[in-house]
């Protein structure tokens, strides 16, 4: 279970998160919606430990441990995965090698044996096939020369291989066509289990149609201004954020 209490964070002198309270029980998928600049991506970065943000108050406890005390790689080992809105290119770094290094780092942290290249490729091919990705995606350099859609699919592939218990998807659906969108949704749905939970940051109802979140939260001005069931997303799709923002202000 993820429990966020009174979380405030700033970048430089500028406060971005102004007191987030949010609980995501195991087994649930929660959607985070809200206007641009509300702090949605910041929330994802702060939960996964990016340095550029300073946490100024509050707590984040995941499965009983304080995430805020941990380095990013420790959080990854604890099961936290962030699918980046703009995945990073790593020139000269082979995708398969990157994924195997990451997977083995996490396996090591869990006291599991490392996979050799052959074992890894076997596993990776199953996932690429399931995600309808060409095999050569593994041979190419990490995200270099990938189309926008390919980058997002690569994030989903990483998620499928690393099997996190808490996935944070930062607008992984934006800019995707219907087929790619289905792949993202299927990627998350495939991981669904009583021990898995996800925070899905999105602007679009079409992803939520396939994902069907347990809860929808609206983040605006650094706070959660409203929470509800899946119907809240449909309402927002129809009416926009204007009413909500006026209410919150």
């Amino acid at each position: 279970m993820l429990e966020i209490r009174g979380l405030t964070a700033s970048i430089g002198e500028k406060p971005i998160l102004k007191g987030i309270d949010l609980t995501v029980p195991d087994g649930e998928v929660h959607a985070i919606m809200g206007p641009n600049g509300a702090g949605k991506s910041t929330l994802g970065y702060v939960l996964s430990g990016r340095d550029d943000y300073t946490v100024t108050g509050g707590s984040v406890v995941y499965n009983g441990v304080d995430l805020l005390d941990m380095a990013p790689e420790q959080r990854a080992a604890a099961g936290v995965f962030l699918a980046f809105q703009a995945p990073i290119e790593l020139p000269g770094v082979n995708n398969a090698n990157f994924l195997r290094t990451a997977l083995n780092a996490i396996r090591r942290a869990h006291g599991e044996s490392e996979l050799d290249a052959v074992q890894f490729l076997k596993l990776a091919r199953i996932e690429t096939k399931r995600l309808a990705m060409p095999d050569d995606m593994l041979k190419r350099n990490v995200n270099v020369g990938f189309s926008g859609g390919e980058k997002k699919r690569n994030e989903v592939l990483q998620m499928a291989l690393l099997r996190p218990s808490l996935a944070i998807l930062d607008e992984t659906d934006s800019g995707l066509d219907i087929d790619a969108l289905r792949i993202v949704a299927d990627g998350v749905n495939a991981l669904r289990a009583p021990t898995f939970s996800a925070l899905v940051i999105t602007h679009h109802q079409r992803l939520l149609d396939r994902l069907v979140p347990n809860r929808v939260h609206v983040l605006a001005h650094g706070r959660i201004v409203r929470s509800g069931g899946p119907e809240l997303a449909r309402e927002l799709e129809k009416n926009g954020y204007a009413d909500l923002l006026a209410e919150a202000a």
């Binding site: 550029d52 990013p72 990854a76 962030l82 980046f84 990073i88 790593l90 990451a102 780092a105």
Partner: peptide
């Protein structure tokens, strides 16, 4: 930072 963070988020030291 971006490249390092991306790798570390995936579990690399």
């Amino acid at each position: 930072e971006e490249k390092l963070f991306y790798c570390r988020q995936r579990g690399l030291t």
